[in-house]
Amino acid sequence: MSSNEPPGGMFGLSYDSESRVFEALKLLSTAIIVLVGVWPIYWMIQLAFTEYETVEDAVTVFPLPEIFTLDNFAVLADPEMYTYMFNTVVVAIGTIVTVVVVSLIAGYGLARLSFPQKENFARILLIGYLFSPIVIGIPLYQIWRSIGLLDTRIGLIIALSALSMPFAVWLMWKYIMTIPEAHEEAAWVDGASRWRGFRDVVVPQCRPAIIAAALFAFALAWNDFTFAQILLPSTETTTFAPGVLRAMGQAQFLPDAHLMAISLVMTLPPLLFAYFMQSYLLKGFQVRAL
């Protein structure tokens, strides 16, 4: 395929200098990624520790000792903000549990059992990627209202779980197919029922896929604004994203530094997950789960 090309490295360089150029480019790229990736987060952190009166006056790059403060975090004690965050946590946990349980069982069925229309079912599942929160949310608003799920966290959990399904089910399906069937058969030989074999042998081995699906569901729930905005219209039940936006519109006193402080708190869980669980995440994504 490349026999016609002149020998040697790129741009006619020797392999050696090609390597040096490559290393330099890599270093430069890394620097840019760090700068662009970290910078906004750094900015959020430093503003969170800056006295709010000074934020709007001038740009400060470092939280100087004279304007350094922890007072911004007092906003966490605000009952309204506390409600929003609590609701977000409940919705996230509810979504994760629903998504993991439902997708594990469905993935197992797709991987191990044969039933009519199985392949078509899997394909139809992919249509789920087309579900736009706004397209679904507008009609769902009336439907939820008529069956009493409007303004309930359950209603939001159901909606967000459905949105995670195409990814989670495909992931579980493909992942379970990589587990040798003999493991399960060994359990059956040992006297385990199908359910017991699933529980004792398949589920523990699905850990990377479970974590990947859980992280994906978490990202969706933690991120969600549109569904919560439409399906949780009242202030008491709503989650962080729409809550804080409404608070900004209504509140007399809500300085940006306070918003940065609360944002920082909300950023910590994703940051920790991203650091400690990235290997599971990549392993999960490797099975071509789309």
């Binding site: 760090v34 987060i41 959020m44 991120n223 962080f240 994203a241 940051l271 990235q278």
Partner: peptide, 27 residues
């Protein structure tokens, strides 16, 4: 590992926080 975590955080971070940050830095 650290860099991957930072990059992944951008995806996991709630949109509203990205918006709040953007509103602040473009204020």
């Amino acid at each position: 590992k650290l860099l991957t975590a930072v990059v992944f955080t951008a995806y996991l971070i709630p949109t509203i926080i990205v918006s709040l940050m953007a509103l602040r830095v473009f204020d």
